[in-house]
């Protein structure tokens, strides 16, 4: 068995950071990234091609794809408005790694959620996973507990595996959430953690006012995301012969 090694790379003092927000459990990544892009007034600088594109976004009369890239200063963000299914996860991650190399990204931060049915909404926890030993200091400095044991499945697993084997240091943040319904509280917790890491204050007043509406407006995307996650769970799992 190949031994897993954690890498050691020096992190610049003022790194170029790429934030990733994709539809997943509780739609945490999508809601958090949408708000950050809005709050930091990030500029739309490009998109990641999805083939074939099933939907397009119209912005100021221009057609753009559902997976878009934004930038403000040294912060980049990739926001997807469609769930990334298993078949596209590898190509999608390759595109992210390629973009990161071309744009001298020093750190990727991937945001997602883990299902905790009896979580304390007033005190949600975010757990961190790193692909590079140097990044553990970031977790420590920001009081983010390490994700010590458990299972990550679906597109998250594929994306993280690909990112781990790339040369770009990555932190994965998993916040306790409701897996099945849009969870703005968990998204808000993720924004707080990201705000500490990137050292940019993000005012959550507007987000708090919209919590109920975010749950209403994201029903369709939540259902589509669950269909993708569920399809992967139900992929051929031939029972062992003994149970037939």
């Amino acid at each position: 068995m190949q031994k897993s090694k954690i890498k050691k790379t020096d992190m610049p003092k003022n790194p170029n950071v790429l934030l990733l927000g994709l539809p997943g459990p509780g739609l945490i990544g999508t809601m958090a990234m949408t708000y950050i892009i809005h709050s930091l007034k990030m500029d739309l600088i490009g998109e990641i091609e999805t083939n074939p594109a099933s939907i397009v976004f119209i912005d100021n009369g221009q057609i753009v794809g559902p997976v878009r890239i934004y930038k403000s200063g040294k912060i980049f963000a990739i926001l997807s408005d469609i769930p990334i299914d298993y078949d596209n996860a590898v190509d999608f991650t390759d595109a992210i790694v390629d973009f990161s190399k071309k744009n001298n990204i020093d750190l990727i931060i991937f945001t997602s959620g883990i299902h905790v049915p009896d979580r304390n909404i007033a005190n949600l926890k975010t757990y961190g996973l790193v692909t590079d030993e140097k990044l553990e200091k970031i977790l420590y400095d920001n009081e983010i507990p390490k994700f010590l044991s458990g299972v990550i499945s679906g597109p998250d697993a594929t994306i993280l595996t690909q990112l781990k084997s790339s040369t770009i240091p990555t932190i994965a943040l998993h916040t306790e959430c409701n897996y099945f319904f849009p969870d703005p509280d968990a998204a808000m917790q993720t924004i707080k953690i990201l705000s500490h890491i990137i050292k940019i204050e993000i005012d959550l007043t507007e987000f708090k006012k919209q919590i109920d509406y975010l749950r209403l407006q994201n029903r369709q995307l939540m259902e589509e995301t669950l269909n993708v996650l569920q399809a992967q769970r139900e992929q051929p799992t031939t029972p062992p012969q003994i149970y037939k």
Binding site: H38, D81, E206, K209, Q210, Y213, L214, Q217, Q220, L221
Partner: peptide
């Protein structure tokens, strides 16, 4: 608010026909 209209515009663009 700005954020509310931003979200609504986004959601309506994507799911306006299949809400």
């Amino acid at each position: 608010s700005d954020f509310a209209s931003f979200i609504e515009k986004q959601m309506n663009s994507f799911f306006g026909d299949a809400h």
